[in-house]
Each structure stands twice: as structure tokens, then as C-alpha cells.
């Protein structure tokens, strides 16, 4: 039953989406693209881009998008609610603990331990998204056939992100416009 499957997958994603937004992307990608095959990698990259053009958090956007594609509007509602359900429960439990003891030390220790894992997840996501942008996938890496326009846009955005403190939203939208112009002129 597809509804049950959506519920299960997004509930699990919701339980383990630490680090927020783009940091949790790799977990979602692994489940939705690799394991379930609900989206392809380019489609996944599109959803991330569309997410930057529309209001709302990335995780919710992906859950809604996948939900509709797989099982229509009910699918969207189920996927989205399944995704936030663990947050509702955990946040409330933590709030109760907080108002009772006013201390969160133990939790902070575990969170500190999670940080290297989150950094590694972002790295994994970066590798996959870079391969997708430059070669169209992880398994088709082929240096002579590198997409040079993508490489140029990517390098430029990296410089701007790092030295000019450009925001991620502006970087993604900017690369869309710049890339579109370059592709239209050169390719």
C-alpha cells in the first residue's frame, strides 16, 4: 500500500533529519532516490532548486512534491504530516523536560557527537550534487566530458559564497540566471 509506504519512509526521515534544511538532504535523497526510486537525481536537484524559488522549508517541499507525484493530493498530505510528526512529539517532550529541569546538557552532548556525521552527510550530498551538475550523475564521471559552463558557474558561486558572503538562496537563483544565459548563448 503506497500510502503506508509514504508514511513509513517520511516518518523515518523525520526522525533522523538532524542539522536542518540542506544538511538533511542526503538522508532524504538516499531514501527517495536510491531506495524507493520515487525521483531521479536530476528531479531531486530540481526540487531543491524549486524549493529555493518558493516559500517553505526544503524538507516539507520535498515531502509534498514526492507525495503528490507518488499518490496524488492524499499522498502529499500523508508524506508531509508523517515527516513532521516526529518533530511534534519530540519538540513537545523536550519542552516538557525544559520547563521541568531548565537544562539540556545530556542532549547537547549527543548533538555534539552528531556534528561530524552531519558534516559527512553534507559532504556526501555535495559529491553527488557536483557529479550531477558536471556530468549528469555519479556513475558517468568522465573528465573530458565535463560540463564547462556548470563548472564555471559553480566555481564563480563558490568564490562569491566564500569571499563575498553571498547567501545560499541568492547563489542558487543567481546560478540559475547566469547558467540559463550561458547555456542559451553557448550551448
Amino acid at each position: 500500500m503506497i500510502y503506508l509506504q509514504l508514511l513509513q519512509v517520511f516518518f523515518l526521515i523525520g526522525c533522523f533529519s538532524f542539522g536542518g534544511g540542506l544538511a538533511g538532504m542526503e538522508l532524504i535523497r538516499q531514501r527517495v532516490v536510491d531506495q524507493q526510486g520515487w525521483l531521479t537525481t536530476p528531479e531531486f536537484s530540481d526540487v531543491v532548486s524549486i524549493s529555493e524559488m518558493t516559500p517553505g522549508p526544503l524538507g516539507i517541499n520535498i515531502a509534498s512534491f514526492v507525495g503528490v507525484r507518488v499518490a496524488g493530493v492524499p499522498g502529499s498530505v500523508i508524506a508531509t504530516l508523517a515527516y513532521v510528526l516526529p518533530s511534534v512529539v519530540l519538540v513537545m517532550v523536550m519542552a516538557v523536560v525544559y520547563y521541568k529541569y531548565r537544562s539540556l546538557k545530556g542532549v547537547q552532548g549527543v548533538l555534539k557527537g552528531l556534528r561530524p556525521a552531519i558534516a559527512a552527510m553534507i559532504l556526501a550530498s555535495a559529491v553527488k550534487m557536483t557529479c550531477n551538475a558536471l556530468w549528469g550523475g555519479v556513475n558517468v564521471v568522465d573528465l573530458p566530458h565535463t560540463n564547462l559552463i556548470a563548472l564555471f558557474v559553480m566555481a564563480l558561486m563558490l568564490v562569491l559564497l566564500h569571499f563575498k558572503k553571498l547567501g545560499p538562496v541568492q547563489a542558487i537563483l543567481g546560478s540559475g540566471v547566469l547558467g540559463a544565459v550561458l547555456y542559451a548563448m553557448l550551448a
Binding site: L22, A23, M25, P42, S45, D46, V48, S49, I50, E52, R115, P116, I118, A119, I122, L123, S125, A126, M129, T130, N132, A133, L134, I149, A150, L151, V153, M154, A155, M157, L158, L161, H162, P168, A171, I172, L173, G174, S175, G176, V177, L178, G179, A180, L182, Y183, A184
Partner: peptide, 26 residues
């Protein structure tokens, strides 16, 4: 289609930069 194609490079750049900041922080 062109915009989205361009944005793929932007998404990659943002992730690479995030990897750097996150790792440096860790």
C-alpha cells in the same frame, strides 16, 4: 529548463561551501 539546469551548479556550489564551513566548525 535552462534556469533549472543552471541552478544545478548553484546547488552543488552551496553544498560544497556548506561542507567546508561545517567541517571547519567540527
Amino acid at each position: 529548463a535552462l534556469l533549472l539546469k543552471g541552478m544545478q551548479a548553484g546547488v552543488a556550489a552551496v553544498m560544497i561551501h556548506m561542507t567546508y564551513t561545517m567541517s571547519a566548525n567540527v
